[in-house]
Computed example of a mutant assay.
Amino acid sequence: MLVSTAYAQAAGGAPAGGFELMSFLPLILIFVVFYFLLIRPQQRKLKEHKTMLDALRRGDRVVTGGGLIGTVTKVADDEVTVEIAEGVRVRTVRGTISNVLAKTEPTKGSRDDKETADAAPAKPETSAQSAGVKIGKMFGRK
Results as ranks from 00 to 15, higher is better:
L2Q: 08
S4N: 03
A6L: 14
Y7Q: 09
Y7P: 00
Q9R: 13
A10P: 00
A11I: 03
G13Q: 13
A14C: 09
A14E: 07
G17L: 10
G17T: 07
G18A: 15
M22E: 12
M22N: 11
S23G: 06
F24K: 09
F24V: 10
P26L: 07
L27G: 11
I28Q: 01
I28F: 05
L29N: 04
I30A: 14
F31Y: 08
F31M: 08
F34N: 13
L37S: 14
L38D: 10
R40S: 09
R40F: 08
R40Q: 11
K45V: 02
L46C: 04
K47N: 06
K47H: 12
K50C: 02
K50F: 11
T51F: 09
T51Q: 14
M52L: 15
L53D: 02
D54N: 15
D54C: 07
R57D: 02
R57M: 12
G59V: 12
D60P: 00
R61L: 08
V62W: 01
V62E: 02
V63K: 07
T64S: 15
G65E: 11
G65D: 07
G67Q: 07
G67R: 11
L68P: 00
L68W: 01
L68V: 07
I69W: 00
I69L: 04
G70H: 05
G70C: 08
V72F: 03
K74P: 00
K74R: 14
V75E: 06
A76Y: 09
A76F: 11
D77W: 01
D77N: 11
D77A: 14
V82T: 07
I84W: 05
E86V: 09
T92Q: 01
T92C: 05
V93F: 00
V93I: 06
G95A: 12
S98F: 00
S98C: 01
S98P: 00
S98Y: 02
L101P: 00
L101N: 09
A102G: 04
A102H: 11
K103Q: 06
T104Y: 01
E105L: 10
G109N: 06
S110F: 03
S110W: 05
D113I: 06
K114G: 04
A117S: 14
A117C: 09
D118C: 09
A119S: 14
A119C: 09
A120W: 01
P121V: 08
P121Y: 04
P121T: 10
A122E: 12
K123F: 05
E125M: 12
E125G: 01
E125D: 07
E125I: 00
T126K: 13
A128Y: 14
Q129E: 12
S130Q: 15
A131R: 15
G132H: 08
V133I: 14
K134C: 01
K134M: 10
K134T: 10
I135K: 15
G136A: 15
K137C: 02
M138P: 00
G140Q: 04
R141Y: 06
R141V: 15
K142G: 02
K142T: 02
